[in-house]
Write a protein that binds this DNA or RNA. Sequence first.
DNA 1: CTCCCGATAT
DNA 2: ATATCAGGAG
Length: 214
Amino acid sequence: MPLESLNNKKIRMRYVLDKLKNEYPNSKCSLNYNSPFQLLVATILSAQCTDERVNKVTFNMFKNYPTVFKLNELSQKEIGKLIYSTGFYNNKSKSIKKLCEILISKYNGEIPKTMDELHELPGTGRKTANVVLGNAFNIPGMVVDTHVTRITNLLKFVKTINAVKIERELEKIVPHEDWTLFSHLLIDHGRATCIANRPKCQDCILAEYCPSKK
DNA sequence: CTCCCGATAT
DNA sequence: ATATCAGGAG
């Protein structure tokens, strides 16, 4: 019984992935970065903030402070000024300042490549860690953000808003090689069509697979 | 669960 | 006015 329902989800997921890949052939990370460190910082900044705004902030920030060593020359307060417009600037600047210190003292300025090590870093939860693993190091990670949470629930692939549970469920359903791409596809679709609180179901390419279609 | 929090669209 | 934006920490 559980096996049958899992297989059904895997089959339905193949159709959904096929549709999404066809609709968003160039789907990829929309944060701008030139190194694993920059991606980590940009992803921390992206909490409850549009990527567009993060890119505006990091454009100037990474131009003047491109490395962990350069950025660490700034105080928390100075970092806070640079990232102010992304919101939560107090928490984020505190995380980034401490992040720089730990990366330098413990990792010789490099970015660790395991979930456990990344997750211990300030401001770095599983979502951020998986973004870095997948996009900077090509290590497949299931990123569960606001779009993935919303759309996988609407599609009834999962029935929970617990990010870890969603991650575990999706890892069973989505092919391993597509884990990183999957979040990018859903983010693209969430921005273009399956928009929070006003989904454009009439224009949705997934409508025939969506139990929540209006 | 609550708090952190500015920018933007509706 | 209100909801939402590539969440994380306590």
